[in-house]
Write a protein that binds this DNA or RNA. Structure first.
Lengths: 270, 270
DNA sequence: AGTTGCAACAGGGA
DNA sequence: CTCCCTGTTGCAAC
């Protein structure tokens, strides 16, 4: 379940490692992860060159030259691995991209992942990515004014709003836990009830939390492009059921909020 | 709050009284009840002849010659009145239709009503009427097979389903009360839980209830085309809070079901 | 009491 | 909660 920090690091590593390489052998093991037929996928990708790689939310945008974009979403528990020339490929993968220099990239996901391909002209109509919200790591895009705009008029609870990729792109059920804790917000708090200070804190904490995790290379139990784990492991309350709250010592509770699990300090988060 | 019985009677009276008359002076006091601009409304209606009038759900369809349909919805607490030649018009009305013989028709609604006009070719695209469901007074249309079809796959409660005009057209929050009581159904009963006997009873009771009310000229507190009240007043449980259930004597309760009020016998309706 | 559209929410499926 | 789609429900608007 990579979220924005892991995806952003993968995209950065891909940009550095793959830029300029020419795709020779795209192979798709699992056709259902594609948005087009296998033959069309190969035709769209083969012999194209990697021009740029960037992250938006949980999606990796791979710009190919000429005029094509590869859109990758690792779903839950997915991995993206780089393989030097001559290295053995993993036993299981859903898609493999071979490059003209003998290196390769494999994508594997235990649940649902996407390997989508669109012509450059059609990128704006690709539903899953066209509707993505603010990018917290992009200071041009992630401004307080934009943040308040997306929140305006919303009546529901704050946690589902944070998880909705149309609002802010890249937060999943892992990072959202400490974001709520650090803002002292209960997951069920209704958006209209948030005061100005809470909104400002939330805005700031989202960026701080994701930037910090990104700088640490992402979660310790996720792998980067070279199979190396991240170094972020010190959750404050996330996944620490029964352990003491780092602020007040109260035991962290695991509760159900809507259809997701939440880890909260029942004292600090109201 | 006219529902199908009142609307059906109005349509019948209009058909008998107005067929063949030529519209000369359409006047709209309140433009917001129109679906087109006032000038276009007049152009579409003026000098046309009343060809036919029929009811569908809570809507009155007035076919004009040539090639136009007037669609009237009285909303909540609306009235439609016929005025003989020389008679004084009411003080307040939202729309007035004058005929070449000196007679007139006025429409007044205390809340939201619609006076829509469509070209014959566009009738099928008029959203509010195109999506109307079964017509309980039309035995060709209101068949048990069609009834079950509309119910198939629905998971929600029976009362909202009955009130949704897309399923059955013409039931409002007044007539629905006794329909549910006579079928012995609690308003919150889930559709998948209804057994075959209950479905058959409901199908039959809907028609019986609406036919009976129509034959009685509609509700005693609603007026017909000539300002005369209907003769239907003997609700079984509807609007009889605290009065005894006609079957078991238990006091009728007024409860909230979703966003509407329901009058039920807590003993008979499960 | 009427109708629509939207937002929130739940469930199923890929 | 990875994402979509559909249906249901509640709410505000006219």
């Amino acid at each position: 379940m990579p979220e924005l920090p892991e995806i952003a690091n993968l995209a950065g590593q891909m940009a550095a490692e793959l830029a300029g390489k020419r795709l020779t052998g795209p192979e798709v093991v699992q056709e259902k992860c594609l948005n087009v037929a296998g033959a069309e996928f190969r035709a769209l990708v083969e012999d194209k060159t990697i021009a740029a790689v960037r992250a938006r939310g949980k999606w990796i945008f791979v710009s190919l030259h000429p005029a094509t974009t590869l859109l990758l979403n690792l779903g839950m528990g997915g991995e993206l691995l780089y393989h030097p020339a001559g290295a053995a490929l993993p036993e299981k993968f859903q898609a493999r991209f071979a490059f003209s220099d003998g290196t390769a990239l494999t994508a594997a996901f235990s649940w649902f992942g996407y390997v989508h391909t669109v012509r450059a002209a059609d990128l704006a109509t690709h539903k899953m990515t066209a509707s993505l919200g603010l990018s917290p790591l992009d200071v041009q895009d992630y401004t307080y004014a934009n943040f308040l705009d997306r929140m305006r008029g919303r009546k529901g609870a704050i946690k589902p709003w944070l998880l909705d990729q149309k609002n802010i792109a890249g937060i999943g059920n892992v990072y959202v836990q400490d974001i709520l804790f650090r803002t002292r917000l209960h997951p069920d708090r209704k958006i209209p009830e948030l005061d100005e200070t809470e909104r400002q804190t939330l805005f700031r904490v989202i960026r701080e939390n994701l930037v910090q995790a990104t700088e640490l290379g992402g979660l310790v139990y996720e792998k980067d492009l070279y199979g190396q784990p991240g170094r972020f492991k010190d959750f404050l309350v996330g996944y620490r059921e029964g352990k003491p709250c780092p602020v007040c010592g109260t035991a962290v509770e695991k509760i159900r909020t809507g259809s997701t699990a939440s880890y909260i300090c029942p004292m600090c988060q109201q």
